[in-house]
């Protein structure tokens, strides 16, 4: 399958991936692409490392959304702030006056009661989506720079887990509308970023399987980051192979007058060909195991970072979406 243009029509795109594959870069690129299309975007950064803001060359933000680029706002998840907001909005509990003791016990409750931290995270996300659908928040798209593959199932499944554990009480009824939003394929998609390397591919395959069996959340696309270019067509590859012959080396060496430089370039090209080849095997495995739309992003050889990198990624994504 190729591009999935309808993905950008949804209201909630969750982006996960193994650590180190460029999850935040891709999330920022998606946000910029959506903003290019005239959408107002909210990015929720769950891991709180502040990577998203650096992609827009903006200082770190807190729990209140800050516009980091025209039409792109970012909020950094803070489960304690989320709890405070939840209590204020839903239960009318007057906790503002005595936040001290509440804050102290909160961390403990969240540790002791499984899923509480996760549900406060995903609940805040779902709440922003619901508010925007009902016209009370300005977002056309909420993008989540979510937990890594190992943790995202627990995070996305938190409302279900809570509903299974808690038979009555206000939190149970709160989970119902969250599940409704998260499970609606017209609203939500869970997307996985990977690279064409062994571990990221195998984690992606595992995650897609787990998401299908354990979650009631629609899957969107797999975004394959850092794809190396194919250097040669077949005939060129044969010619490249023939450069190793004594006659060819002598011909090139005579002109260059320097073996070290020629060796550096030739061994570099061999490494590039070999890397591309092993990665192609992983890509083939991924395609065979996962029947989701795939978007490909090239390996960036430039020094580009920050806003310029985000721009390059957004443009590549746009091309992949056929825009």
């Amino acid at each position: 399958m190729t591009a999935a243009p309808d993905l950008l029509a949804r209201r909630l795109l969750v982006v996960t991936g193994k650590g180190g594959v460029g999850k935040s870069t891709v999330t920022a690129g998606l946000a910029l692409l959506a903003a290019d299309l005239g959408k107002r975007v909210l990015i929720v950064e769950v891991d709180g490392k502040g990577d998203i803001c650096t992609k827009f060359e903006h200082p770190p933000v807190g729990f209140d959304p800050v516009e980091v680029h025209p039409n792109i706002s970012v909020l950094a998840m803070d489960t304690e702030a989320s709890l405070r907001e939840y209590l204020r909005l839903n239960l009318k509990v007057p906790v503002l006056g005595r936040l001290g003791p509440v804050a102290r016990v909160f961390d403990f409750v969240a540790t002791a009661a499984p899923g509480v931290k996760e549900v406060l995270t995903i609940g805040k996300v779902a709440w922003e989506v619901r508010e925007s659908i009902e016209g009370r928040a300005p977002w056309d798209l909420v993008l989540v720079d979510a937990a890594a593959t190992g943790h995202v199932v627990a995070q996305m499944g938190a409302p279900d887990a809570i509903r299974d554990l808690v038979s009555v009480g206000p939190i149970r009824s709160q989970t119902e509308w969250m599940i409704e939003i998260l499970s609606d394929p017209a609203i939500t998609a869970l997307n996985v970023v990977t690279t064409p390397e062994e571990m990221p591919v195998s984690e992606t395959i595992d995650l897609v399987t787990r998401a299908r069996t354990e979650l009631d959340v629609p899957l969107g696309a797999v975004i394959v980051n850092r794809v190396l270019p194919e250097l040669f067509a077949r005939a060129e590859e044969a010619a490249f192979g023939a450069l190793d012959t004594d006659a060819a080396r002598a011909a090139l060496g005579a002109h260059l007058g320097d073996d070290a430089g020629l060796d550096a370039v030739l061994s570099g090209a061999r490494l590039a060909v070999a890397l591309r080849r092993t990665r192609a095997v992983h890509l083939a495995n991924l395609r065979a195991a996962v029947d989701l739309p795939m978007l490909y992003l090239p390996y960036l050889f430039t020094r580009t970072h920050g806003m310029r990198e985000t721009r390059v990624v957004a443009d590549s994504l746009g091309a992949e979406f056929g825009l």
């Binding site: 509990v93 409750v109 509480v116 554990l165 009480g169």
Partner: peptide, 23 residues
């Protein structure tokens, strides 16, 4: 008491009791 006031309203007392027994 302040802790229970909050926890009760978020989690429901049955759940809280389950947790407490476990711990």
């Amino acid at each position: 008491r302040p802790f229970y006031q909050v926890a009760d309203r978020i989690l429901g007392s049955q759940f809280l009791q389950d947790i407490a027994e476990f711990f």
